[in-house]
């Protein structure tokens, strides 16, 4: 196959990747959105749409920009096929990106080339299949442990999953970002101490807290740009 044929073949492959990718993503989206309602039939209760709307307002401000930023940053690294798969299967930062980058470095493929597209897709597909299988086997093994996991002695652990998560995340994010963290952290602490009624509305506190942090980050970014120009 000469270069001309290779390019023509690859253009067709790429167009089909987008077509198949879009169809697959739409189908997966539909079944994912239907799943909570199907689960409702099993447990005997539909989702509370009013609570859903309230919750969505809180998470949208954080996670929609986050998803868009991930799309903008990671798509160039992963190529078309890799991106469709990675956004379907998730765990981008902690697994799919390092895995694809590792495969690319190992094979010497350059970003934006047909080789990178192939390597990246193969790498992410393999990674997704292995993860899914490992989790499935693990889930089968933990089913017999369910009575232990739901014992009263373990409830303090499961009632504090979020604190456990944010403790670890706080160390990771704050140690390099105290300039960004100081103001929202002090403000939120003072607010919750002085006006305890807002504690139950922490999902709304995320909005001003996130806005403050992004504002400070923007100022830091601008200052860095100015320094670089000088």
């Amino acid at each position: 196959m000469d270069m001309q044929q290779k390019n023509t073949y690859f253009d067709t492959y790429n167009n089909n990747t987008h077509r198949i990718g879009r169809i697959c993503v739409i189908l997966i989206l539909l079944i994912l959105l239907a799943a909570p309602f199907a689960m409702g039939l099993v447990v005997g209760a539909a989702p509370d749409l009013k609570a859903f709307a309230m919750g969505f307002m809180s998470i949208a401000v954080i996670y929609i920009p986050s998803c868009i930023v991930e799309f903008l940053i990671y798509t160039p690294m992963l190529g078309a096929g890799g991106s469709y798969l990675a956004f379907i299967t998730g765990n981008l930062i902690n697994m799919k990106i390092p895995c694809a980058v590792n495969a690319r470095e190992m094979t010497g493929a350059k970003v934006g080339t047909p080789e990178n597209e192939i390597i990246s897709t193969l790498s992410i597909a393999t990674s997704s299949l292995v993860t899914t299988l490992v989790i499935a086997v693990g889930v089968l093994l933990i089913i017999p442990l369910q009575p232990i996991l739901s014992s009263p002695a373990l409830q303090p652990a499961f009632n504090n999953v979020i604190a456990a998560l944010f403790g670890a995340m706080a160390y990771r994010y704050f140690r390099g970002g105290m300039k960004i963290a100081a103001l929202p952290l002090i403000t939120m602490t003072l607010l919750c101490v002085l006006v305890p009624s807002v504690i139950s509305s922490v999902s709304f506190l995320i909005i001003p807290s996130g806005a403050m942090a992004i504002g400070i980050a923007f100022l830091i970014h601008k200052n860095q740009q100015k320094k670089e120009l000088k």
Partner: peptide
């Protein structure tokens, strides 16, 4: 940086609520 800041804001709100 914005993504990092968003998570810092999220964590700050939760830490504030725990201290409160």
């Amino acid at each position: 940086l914005a993504m990092k800041a968003m998570f810092i804001g999220l964590i700050s709100a939760y830490i504030g609520s725990y201290i409160g």
